[in-house]
């Protein structure tokens, strides 16, 4: 089908406008992070920083707050919850999809409920427990509600439905133990689903703010999102530092995006299954 030249131009112009809208905040963040406090208060605004070699804002971020520690905390929490969630939800998906037992659908429904129940509806008792069992300001406390996602269970059940039962039966006849069958035969079959969940779970955990805000108080236990917020507590908002800190918080995710771009597109499209 041939396209008229005017249609083509229209598509390019619209695409360009949207691309600018989407990328501008990133660009402005990076540019501002190289500006000195004097520069950001200069009117009229100079678009580019005077010098891209000015890294003083980044140094200041690290001096002011243990920002590397924040990043390390976020990495730890996100990786752990990601791995844990994959293991537990893959097992659950397998059990729900390929076995029959009493109350199966009830259990599944029980887990699916939490697609709708907002986290805020469990946060008060969770917080009270955390205080009671001294889990505030600990990694255990931080990671506890992020460990298994109900969406993950749902997604893995969908994934397991595609695995042919004959494959599992054949493995059983060959005398493979149940766990061995699951680990060696079934898991490789749902690789794309596992990758999808890994990406989504990591992104969600990295960007999580509400729970870490509630549960952490000590500086060395803060995650990146809460650490970022701590730059706003001052009387005067220091955007040269905030933008530098924001750049640092985004870099790991952008690297991940660059590596897994295709997987991320697929992951988002698949998360549309949630219907």
């Amino acid at each position: 089908m041939k396209m008229k030249i005017t249609t083509k131009i229209l598509i390019y112009v619209l695409a360009l406008i949207i691309i600018c809208f989407m990328l501008f905040p990133f660009l402005w963040m990076v540019l501002t992070s190289f500006k000195t406090p004097a520069e950001i208060q200069r009117l009229p605004i100079s678009f580019f920083p005077d010098s891209f070699k000015n890294l003083s804002n980044y140094e200041e971020v690290f001096n002011r707050q243990p920002f590397m520690r924040f990043i390390a905390n976020s990495m730890l929490i996100s990786s752990f919850s990601c791995l844990f969630s994959i293991l537990i939800t893959t097992m659950a998906g397998y059990g729900f999809s390929k076995f029959d037992f009493r109350f199966k659908e009830f259990f599944f429904f029980l887990i699916l409920c939490f697609l709708i129940v907002p986290f805020q509806a469990v946060v008060v008792p969770l917080f009270q427990w955390a205080v009671k069992f001294h889990l505030a300001d600990t990694y255990t406390g931080l990671v506890l509600p992020l460990l298994v996602s109900s969406f993950g269970v749902f997604l893995m059940r969908q994934g397991m439905d595609v695995v042919p039962i004959e494959l599992i039966e054949a493995a059983r006849i060959d005398g493979s133990s149940e766990f061995h069958t699951f680990y060696k035969i079934v898991m490789p079959q749902v690789k794309t689903f596992i990758a999808t969940q890994a990406i989504i779970k990591f992104m969600w955990s990295w960007n999580e703010f509400f729970w870490p805000l509630v549960i952490t108080n000590r500086v060395d236990m803060k995650v990146v999102t809460v650490g970022l917020q701590s730059f706003t507590n001052m009387y005067f908002v220091e955007y040269h530092l905030i933008t530098a800190a924001a750049v640092l918080s985004v870099v790991p995710m952008v690297i991940m995006f660059a590596i897994f771009q295709r997987g991320i597109v697929r992951a988002v499209a698949m998360s549309g299954l949630k219907g």
Partner: peptide, 22 residues
Amino acid sequence: LQIASLLPMMMSLVAASLIFQW
């Protein structure tokens, strides 16, 4: 366009809010 539209998802709402506020 695809990369540009998905990139914001990589940013936390916290960071995005700070940038927009600026």
